[in-house]
């Protein structure tokens, strides 16, 4: 299978506010030495708690930010070595679905406009073609083409996330980065959205980077998983293997989590986070 995304030795640190005036600027190592590969049709889960570096990873893969070290290759191209016009052309090949369907759509634009936005970069597509592609994308995510004229606030959270997914697939990308795509949704909607992502992936042969703090979701949705802790990928492999026979103690502690098993009360009092 063809490799769609690969990271090798990627690191990124962010400066924190100075503790003292003129003192040294402390750095937060948000991501250290991360390496991974993702092939067409495959879903790789990135799991970790808040601050583990999984969102930084997504930002770097999407080229919103540059790594301090390491290489990020999307569709065979090093996105940080590519000249701007070529990166712009490559962008149709990798798209993102954000966590918050309220914040990821411009409230002042009809959703059809937002879905068409990724197509604007391609001068070969004229307005009628764009409209046709938007209508197709809306149908693919289970909405009606007429819904494109509505504004985001006229949709429920789940429908908005469908709109965001339509925007993510309208360029027919090879890679979709999904950052906590269902955690802002009501529980009864989550299944719909996850099933939709699975269907689209099967239809389009998408590679998916699925970022979540929720182990059960990752176990369900992903083929392979990378567990992140304090900016490092501490363990990775096929989901069934990592989750049933975790090698790292951190992975074990994630899996032994209160959500699934109740911890001993005594331990709580002495071992406060």
């Amino acid at each position: 299978m063809s490799v769609v995304l690969s990271l090798s030795g990627v690191s990124r640190a962010y400066p924190l506010p100075r503790r003292r005036l003129l003192g040294p600027r402390p750095m937060l190592q948000a991501l250290s030495d991360a390496s991974l590969t993702l092939s067409a049709g495959e879903t790789l889960g990135i799991v970790g708690e808040s601050g583990s570096g999984k969102s930084t990873l997504a930002r770097l893969v999407m080229g919103f930010d540059r790594p301090d070290a390491g290489r990020i290759t999307v569709l065979g191209q090093d996105i940080n070595a590519l000249p701007a016009p070529e990166l712009r052309r490559l962008r149709a090949g990798f798209q993102m679905v954000f966590q918050d369907p309220f914040g990821s759509l411009d409230p002042r634009r009809p959703v059809g406009w937002s879905i068409a936005e990724p197509l604007l970069a391609d001068p070969a597509l004229d307005a009628p073609t764009r409209r046709k592609r938007v209508a197709e994308a809306l149908e693919q995510v289970g909405l009606r083409p007429a819904d494109g004229a509505k504004f985001p606030h006229q949709f429920s959270g789940g429908q908005r996330q469908r709109v965001a997914i339509a925007r993510g697939i309208v360029t027919r990308p090879r890679l979709l980065v999904a950052d906590e795509p269902v955690s802002a949704l009501d529980v009864s909607m989550q299944g719909q959205i996850l099933n939709l992502l699975s269907d689209l992936q099967a239809q389009m042969g998408l590679a998916m980077l699925f970022i979540s703090h929720d182990l059960a979701l990752v176990a369900h949705q992903c083929d392979r998983v990378a567990v992140m802790h304090r900016g490092r990928i501490v363990e990775s492999g096929p989901v069934a293997q990592v989750f049933s026979h975790p090698r790292e103690s951190y992975t074990r502690s994630l899996l032994a989590r209160p959500e699934t098993k109740s911890a001993d009360n005594r331990e709580l009092v002495n071992n406060t986070p």
Partner: peptide, 12 residues
Amino acid sequence: RDYVLAARASAR
């Protein structure tokens, strides 16, 4: 806002 990030991801 995320919609600006989305626009950046859309090569704008």
